[in-house]
Amino acid sequence: MNTLLNDITNTPHAVAVVGASGHTGGFVVAELLRRGFQPIAIGRSVERLAASGFSERGVECRVAALEDDKALDRALAGAAAVINCAGPFIDTADTVVRAALRAGIHYLDVTAEQSSVLATFEQHSAAAQNADVTVIPAMGFFGGLSDLLVTAAMNEWEHADTIEIRVALDSWHPTGGTRLTGKRNTAQRLTISGGQLQLVHHSPVERVFTLPAPFGEQTFVELPFSEVPLISRHVRTTELSTFLNTAALRDIRDPSTPPPQSVDKSGRSAQRFAVEVVITQGAALRKIVAQGRDIYAISAPIICEAVHRILSDKTRASGVTPPAATFNAADFLRALGPDMSVEISAR
């Protein structure tokens, strides 16, 4: 490694990406470059890192197996933060959080797994607080986006009677990592009922909702993701329900559904998404809708905006913290404007 690269990677702008050669990791590296950061691409395979084209874009590549603490510590050297894109996160989050704490750097990931989020809060809150490090699990499409939308719509409300999150995808072509996570993520799901975090004991509830174009009327099934443990940490609500449209669920359950295919120079697929949040308090109702393209690609600007804010804010929160308890939710969503549209309404 030359002296110039040493100087670059030891600046506050060096951000490590674990799982960089994966599908989401590639989007994150590209977004960090676009924002002027110096990514450090970390993976376990020399061949996959070489095939990624990172070196041609001036990105330093470092090889480390997550089960090798010393190699991972070396890979994180000089970074100010680490973004974990290597799922399943029930297998990787604990290891990478511990490495981040040893290095004294901030940690973020894009998990959709409830059990991973809960374990991060339960196992690392005290250590992260003591180290004055910010740890944010689920800072991506699943988890973080819904947490931000709920909080922005709540605004000055101190509590809600009901919160419904409706996620609609016009298709879901899963990555290999998504399929592997689905096989590993067998924990019983959680929701909020009676104001408490509760296991979902009933059979999945089906509902019909009408979302903005191009979706229209869709059938949804109750399926909570990592937004539930995040929201439960800082939002008071009697009931919380998350729904996914059945068209997306059919795609991901079909083993013959191919992985996502790029349709533009950025690598994004043609997939469209909408996330609609409906909140009630008595007779009052508030609604917020976010729409955009490609749930894997959109996670990159979301998590990179979070990194930017953490590294530039001397008053940032420390410890393990939900996205919307860390940032001003409405302001954060406005910053994503070029990549996603957001509309709020009230009745």
Score class of each variant (00 low, 15 high):
residue 90 I to G: 00
residue 208 V to D: 09
residue 71 A to Q: 11
residue 343 E to L: 11
residue 81 A to Y: 04
residue 162 T to E: 06
residue 329 A to S: 03
residue 273 F to S: 01
residue 205 V to R: 12
residue 201 H to N: 14
residue 289 V to H: 04
residue 118 L to D: 13
residue 3 T to V: 14
residue 312 S to K: 04
residue 146 S to I: 02
residue 44 R to H: 08
residue 62 R to V: 06
residue 65 A to P: 11
residue 207 R to G: 13
residue 251 D to E: 08
residue 186 T to P: 10
residue 130 N to L: 15
residue 146 S to V: 01
residue 249 L to Y: 08
residue 76 L to Y: 04
residue 198 Q to D: 12
residue 204 P to Q: 04
residue 291 Q to W: 10
residue 195 G to T: 05
residue 230 L to Y: 06
residue 244 L to A: 06
residue 210 T to D: 15
residue 308 H to S: 15
residue 170 D to Q: 02
residue 65 A to C: 14
residue 199 L to I: 13
residue 70 K to W: 11
residue 80 A to T: 13
residue 2 N to A: 14
residue 35 R to M: 00
residue 304 C to V: 11
residue 285 L to C: 10
residue 246 T to S: 09
residue 122 E to N: 09
residue 285 L to A: 12
residue 48 R to E: 11
residue 26 G to D: 03
residue 21 S to H: 00
residue 106 H to E: 03
residue 153 A to C: 15
residue 101 L to K: 00
residue 164 E to T: 13
residue 328 N to T: 04
residue 109 D to P: 00
residue 168 A to L: 04
residue 190 L to E: 10
residue 301 P to F: 07
residue 219 T to P: 03
residue 93 A to T: 00
residue 37 F to L: 03
residue 46 V to W: 12
residue 37 F to W: 02
residue 198 Q to R: 14
residue 218 Q to W: 03
residue 324 A to K: 02
residue 165 I to E: 01
residue 125 S to Y: 10
residue 12 P to V: 13
residue 281 Q to R: 06
residue 59 V to D: 04
residue 187 A to N: 06
residue 237 T to K: 08
residue 196 Q to C: 13
residue 278 V to D: 05
residue 161 D to E: 07
residue 107 Y to F: 04
residue 275 V to H: 05
residue 259 P to T: 03
residue 325 A to M: 01
residue 318 S to P: 01
residue 222 E to M: 08
residue 82 V to M: 05
residue 245 N to A: 06
residue 147 D to M: 05
residue 133 V to A: 01
residue 338 P to Y: 02
residue 145 L to Q: 05
residue 132 D to C: 11
residue 176 G to E: 06
residue 92 T to N: 00
residue 182 G to V: 07
residue 253 R to K: 10
residue 229 P to H: 00
residue 280 T to E: 08
residue 30 A to L: 06
residue 284 A to N: 12
residue 245 N to Y: 07
residue 137 P to Y: 01
residue 304 C to M: 10
residue 115 S to C: 15
residue 238 T to N: 12
residue 146 S to Y: 02
residue 10 N to W: 14
residue 6 N to L: 15
residue 134 T to C: 07
residue 2 N to K: 11
residue 222 E to F: 00
residue 137 P to G: 02
residue 48 R to Y: 11
residue 155 N to P: 10
residue 222 E to G: 04
residue 323 P to V: 02
residue 42 I to N: 01
residue 247 A to V: 10
